[in-house]
C-alpha cells in the first residue's frame, strides 16, 4: 500500500523563526521556548513590520533567544544585553528593541545595567525568563534562587535572599512591570504587546522551570513545577509590589502591575538637545 504522507503544516511562526537553526538547544521540560513563542506571537500580532524590531540577548539558556528569531538579532556578552540595546535605541529611536534574557544574566552580572536603563526610562522591553538558577552552566545559585533552595554551589541550601524583580524594576523607574509564568502564554503575549506600546522601560518577568538543574536538586519534577504555576499563583494586577516575593506555599502573585506614562529617555534627549540644536 502506498502511503501518502501528508505535507507537514508550516510552523505558525515560521516567518519569525530562523528555521535553519531548529532544533533549538533548550532541554525537554524547559519553559524558555514557551516564553519565546509568546513573545513572537506578540510581535506578529502587533502588526509592526519585522524590520522595525531588534532583539538583544545576553548569555545563558534564554540568551539563545536572539539566535532563533528572524529579525536583526544580537547575542552579546554576559550581562550586557541592556547596554547594547541602549546603544541601538539611542542611535535609532524608531526601532522596537526587545531584550530577551535570563535572571542570572540580567540581575547578577547585568544588574547595574538593568537599574540604570530603568532609571533612564530607556524605551526598551526587557523579558526575563526566570528559572531561579544558572541553567546553562549546570545549576549554580542565582540572584533569584529562593532562600534555602539547593544549587550546585549551595548544596546545603541558599543562605541568601533573592530579588523581588517587579519591585526592583518599579523602584528603579520602569513604566511597565508584569510577572507571569510560562503557562500563561496568552497573558505573556498580551503583556509584551502592552510593553511595546508603553513608551518607556518595560519589564516582564516570566517564571519558567529548569527541571534539569533546579527541579532535580530541589525535588520538584517538571510537571510539579507547572502544577505550582497553575495552582499556587494568584492574578492580582493591583498587588502591593513589596509582597511579590516568590513563595509558592503562600502563593505567587502574577499580573500586569504597572503601566504608566512618563517621557522616555530618547524623547527627553531629543527635546532637550535636538530641538535646541535644530
Amino acid at each position: 500500500m502506498k502511503a501518502t504522507a501528508a505535507k507537514p503544516l508550516p510552523h505558525p511562526m515560521e516567518d519569525l523563526i530562523r528555521m535553519d537553526r531548529i532544533p533549538h538547544i533548550w532541554c525537554s521540560g524547559c519553559g524558555t521556548g514557551s516564553v519565546f513563542m509568546a513573545c513572537l506571537s506578540a510581535i506578529k500580532e502587533s502588526g509592526i513590520p519585522y524590520n522595525e524590531f531588534s532583539m538583544v540577548s545576553g548569555i545563558g539558556c534564554s540568551g539563545r533567544g536572539a539566535g532563533y528569531i528572524n529579525v536583526d538579532s544580537f547575542h552579546t556578552t554576559h550581562g550586557r544585553a541592556i547596554p547594547f540595546a541602549t546603544g541601538i535605541k539611542m542611535a535609532k529611536p524608531d526601532l522596537n528593541v526587545i531584550v530577551f534574557s535570563g535572571d542570572g544574566d540580567l540581575f547578577a552580572i547585568g544588574g547595574n545595567h538593568f537599574i540604570h536603563a530603568a532609571r533612564r526610562n530607556m524605551d526598551i522591553t526587557v523579558i526575563c525568563v526566570n528559572n531561579l538558577i544558572y541553567g546553562m552552566t549546570g545549576g549554580q545559585v542565582a540572584a533569584t534562587t529562593p532562600h534555602k533552595a539547593k544549587s550546585s554551589t549551595t548544596a546545603a541550601g541558599n543562605p541568601e535572599t533573592p530579588f523581588n524583580l517587579p519591585l526592583l524594576a518599579y523602584a528603579s523607574g520602569a513604566t511597565f512591570v508584569a510577572r507571569w509564568t510560562m503557562l500563561h502564554s496568552r497573558d505573556i503575549a498580551d503583556a509584551v504587546q502592552m510593553a511595546l506600546n508603553n513608551k518607556g522601560f518595560s519589564f516582564i518577568e516570566v517564571l519558567s522551570p529548569c527541571p534539569i538543574n533546579y527541579g532535580r536538586r530541589n525535588k520538584e519534577k517538571a510537571l510539579e513545577t507547572l502544577r505550582l504555576y497553575h495552582d499556587n499563583t494568584i492574578i492580582k494586577s493591583n498587588a502591593d509590589l513589596s509582597e511579590l516575593d516568590i513563595d509558592f506555599k503562600r502563593g505567587v502573585v502574577l499580573g500586569n502591575f504597572i503601566n504608566k506614562e512618563k517621557p522616555s529617555h530618547d524623547e527627553q534627549y531629543s527635546k532637550i538637545y535636538h530641538a535646541e540644536a535644530g
Binding site: 550586557r80 547594547f84 546603544g87 535605541k89
Partner: peptide, 18 residues
C-alpha cells in the same frame, strides 16, 4: 553610561544601526 563596560557595549549596539 553607568560604567565603562556599558559605555563600550553601547557603542557596539549603536554601530549596528549604521
Amino acid at each position: 553610561m553607568e560604567d565603562e563596560i556599558a559605555a563600550m557595549t553601547s557603542i557596539l549596539g549603536a554601530a549596528w544601526t549604521g
